[in-house]
Each structure stands twice: as C-alpha cells, then as structure tokens.
C-alpha cells in the first residue's frame, strides 16, 4: 500500500492510498480513498454536498490525519515530522478569500507563507512580486485586502499560495461567487500556471473547461475516475451522484481540452 512508487525519478504530485477517516463524533467521512495525480495534471474533484470533499482536502496537508491509509506529496509522506515541508508543497486556496487573506496588506499576505518558511529580504520580495505578477495583481500590492473586489481577492488568495512555489495547488470551489468575467479571468490564470492542480468544485462546466480529468467522490469513496467529458456525458453516473449540469448545457457540444 505505502510502498515506493514505480517511477522513482518523478513521483506523482499526489498519491492517496486507502485513506479512511472518521470524525471524533463517530461520523465517518472517508471509506478508503485511492487517488493518484501525476505531476502537471489538472484534475477536478466532483461530488455532492457531504461527500467528504473538504475532509479529503484537509488530509492533503496534514490538518486532519490519524485515520487509516496514507497520503504522499511528491514522494514525501504526510506525517508529523514533515508537516512544515508538506504545507509548503501543498497550497490550499480556501473558498472564502476573507478567511485566506488575514494580513493588513496584499503584499504582506502573499509574503506570509514564504516568510514562515524562513525566506527574508530580496528573495522574499522577488517571490511576492512574481506571485502577484502571475495573477495580474502586481499593482495592488500595498492595498488592504478588504478594499479589493471579490474576484481580485480570490486572485490574491491564489497568489498567496503560488508564492510558496507549491508542488500541487488545491482549490476549494474556485468559481463560487464570481461574476462571469472574474470567473473567466481566473480560468485564464489557472490555465497559464505550470503546476499540478486539484480543483474541488460543483461548477461542472468549469471543470470541463479546465480539467481534462475528473474524479467523483461520493459516499466517502472515489466512485468514478476518467475524462471529464466522458463522466459528464454519463447520465446514469451523474444522476446516481446528484451531479447536475446547468440548464441548457450540453457537454457533448464543446471541444474539451486534452
């Protein structure tokens, strides 16, 4: 189960094996999840409310743990002694940017992660500038986060994580509460990044637009894993897991990215 990965040269960005977890109150959220995400892949994690998506995400950087199974990030197991390095490698963008942006200015917020990892001075400034540049927010560096629009805050939240140069970017509902223009801008940014992405979402067209591969998490297990377009076209599967496409959207009608 936890043996070495076959290709030792480039281990997958994420390898989850047999992961099970029950909350302290006895409610079991995960029943043996197996998921491998290769380096550079963009994968959507789909599933109805209460499927255990957030629980899974919190296992990826060791916030939750102590259940059965294992999680490895680029070959490094998520365990107590590696937590600092794991949290540098796994960048989680939470759903509400007001939770993610807790420092008084955008620049300090983006600097928080790398500074916590021990970076200082010119190298820190370079990281911050580069991360803000990649999300197109460089000119907002000295603004307080609460003076930005929601879409801008979400982009800064992505930058706070990019500044840590993560192995894998985990986004929790990245398109929620965004107007269509901000939604498209964020998609352009995500597409331009050269990083592994795991995207938790209910927004199926968004998953189709950005992620060639999707997995469906339902009832605490991976219920399906395949090409996003194939999954969205499988009506029986979609119905079974309470996944619904927006009115008038036909996944067959679009040319999906490869």
């Amino acid at each position: 189960m936890t043996g070495p990965t076959p290709a030792e040269s480039t281990p997958p960005s994420l390898q989850v094996s047999g992961l099970a977890y029950a909350y302290p109150d006895g409610h079991q959220a995960l029943f043996g999840v197996d998921l491998t995400v290769a380096r550079g892949e963009r994968v959507a994690l789909l599933g109805p409310n209460g499927a255990g998506k957030t629980t899974l995400v919190l296992h990826l950087n060791g916030i939750l743990g102590a259940g059965a199974g294992s999680v490895e990030v680029a070959g490094l197991p998520v365990a107590k002694q590696n937590l600092a390095e794991i949290r540098r490698r796994v960048g989680i963008v939470f759903q509400d940017p007001d939770d993610q942006l807790f420092m008084p200015t955008v620049r300090e917020d983006v600097a928080f992660g790398p500074a916590a990892a021990g970076l200082r001075g010119a190298e820190l400034e370079r990281r911050v500038a580069a991360a803000l540049e990649r999300v197109g927010m460089a000119e907002f560096a000295d603004r307080p986060p609460h003076h930005l629009s929601f879409g801008q805050r979400r982009r800064v939240a992505v930058a706070t994580v990019l500044a840590m140069e993560p192995e894998i970017l985990v986004l929790d509902e990245p398109s929620s509460n965004l107007d269509p223009a901000s939604r498209r801008e964020l998609a352009d940014i995500l597409r331009s990044l050269d990083v592994t992405v795991l995207m938790v979402t209910h927004d199926l067209p968004y998953a189709l637009e950005l992620c060639p591969r999707s997995v469906v998490l339902s009832g605490g297990v991976i219920a399906a894993d395949g090409r996003t377009q194939d999954l969205l076209c499988d009506e029986a599967l979609m119905r079974e897991h309470r996944l619904e496409l927006p009115f008038g959207f036909d996944p067959r009608s679009v040319t999906a990215p490869v």
């Binding site: 949290r87 989680i92 509400d96 992660g113």
Partner: peptide, 18 residues
C-alpha cells in the same frame, strides 16, 4: 477558518517577520 488557512501556510505560533 482563518486559523486553518494560517496553519495551511506554515503558521506555527509566531508571525514571520516580513
């Protein structure tokens, strides 16, 4: 939730000097 976000970015009890 804010604390969770801080811990996810490597917060370990003290604010880093920026």
């Amino acid at each position: 939730r804010v604390h969770l976000a801080m811990v996810s970015r490597g917060y370990a009890g003290t604010m880093p000097v920026i």
